[in-house]
Simulated assay, not measured.
Amino acid sequence: MMKKPNILERSLQKSKNAEINLSAFTFMFSEMIQYSQKRVHGIQDLEKKLSDYGYRVGIRVLELSAWREKSGRRETRVLPILYFITGPIWKMLFGKQADSLEKGTENEDEYMISDNEPILSKFISIPREMSLLNPSAFVGGIVEAILDGSQFPCRVTAHSTPIEGFPLHTTILIKFDKSVMQREKAFETR
């Protein structure tokens, strides 16, 4: 009988099997929140800490996805990199694509990624005194790291925006740096 290789011996190529069990992942995430909660002073600090953790993960996700793609090309426009995040990256992390990608109506430098049922929030029960906490700040950190690492400096925040039928609906708000929008306008004038 052939022995199955452990995770360190497996190829970095795409695999058809999930890399980690959902219940183990959500348990670890819940523990991470509890650990962080004891070391911060308020909800904003906790969300910042979760975003920082997500940023660390996002850098590694970008590196892994770049290695797996092997195309050798880097996205230079805003929409293609956002489609890359909402499609292949979201699917790699959460097993599905993001529910929508929208451009802000008030500011041309804002984009929103929506997830109707975020996996991270699905199995987390938040105490009443922390009802304003959005665990998806972790995902915001991942998105920010991928964009920063791809030369699209921005600021990313996560917002709970319950809608009918989706009480956990979350919007990841991306506000790009002015330099990104200037570069984008330069592409349009070519």
Rank of each mutant, 00 (worst) to 15 (best):
N134W: 09
L147G: 01
K49M: 14
D109F: 12
R68Q: 15
R56M: 09
F94A: 04
N107Y: 13
G87V: 10
P80G: 07
F123K: 07
L46E: 07
Q97E: 14
N134R: 04
E108P: 05
P118A: 11
G58D: 03
G87N: 06
E108W: 13
V143K: 05
G140T: 04
G87Y: 03
L82K: 00
T76G: 03
L64D: 11
K70S: 15
D45R: 11
T76I: 15
A137D: 03
Y111A: 09
D148Y: 05
D109Y: 13
V57T: 07
K48G: 02
F138S: 01
N116G: 06
N116H: 11
M112N: 04
E110A: 01
S131N: 02
L79Y: 13
W67N: 03
K91Q: 08
I113Y: 06
R128Y: 15
G72H: 09
N116V: 03
F123L: 13
G141H: 07
S71C: 10
L101M: 02
R77K: 14
T105V: 12
E69A: 11
V78N: 04
E63S: 11
V57D: 07
I113N: 02
M130F: 14
L133A: 05
P80V: 12
L132N: 03
E129F: 12
I81Q: 03
V57I: 15
K48D: 12
T86G: 00
R73C: 08
L132H: 07
T105A: 02
P88T: 10
M112Y: 12
S136F: 00
P118G: 06
V143N: 02
Q97R: 11
K49V: 13
I124G: 00
L120M: 11
T76K: 14
T86M: 05
A98K: 04
L64T: 12
E102R: 08
E110V: 15
L93I: 10
Y111V: 09
A98E: 05
R128Q: 14
R60P: 00
W90G: 01
L147A: 01
R128V: 14
F94P: 00
S51G: 09
T76F: 13
Y55P: 00
S71P: 01
I126E: 02
I124H: 03
R68H: 05
D99L: 08
A137E: 03
D45F: 15
G104I: 11
I85G: 00
Y53C: 07
P118E: 09
S121C: 01
W90V: 04
S71D: 15
S121V: 05
W90T: 08
F123S: 06
I59N: 00
L120V: 14
L132E: 14
T76R: 12
V78G: 02
F84W: 13
I59R: 03
E47T: 07
V78M: 11
Y55S: 01
S71I: 12
I113H: 05
Y83Q: 07
E69K: 11
T76Q: 13
S114V: 09
I59H: 00
S65A: 10
R128M: 11
D45K: 14
I113S: 04
I59C: 00
E106N: 10
I126N: 01
S125Q: 13
A145D: 05
F123Y: 15
P80I: 14
V143A: 08
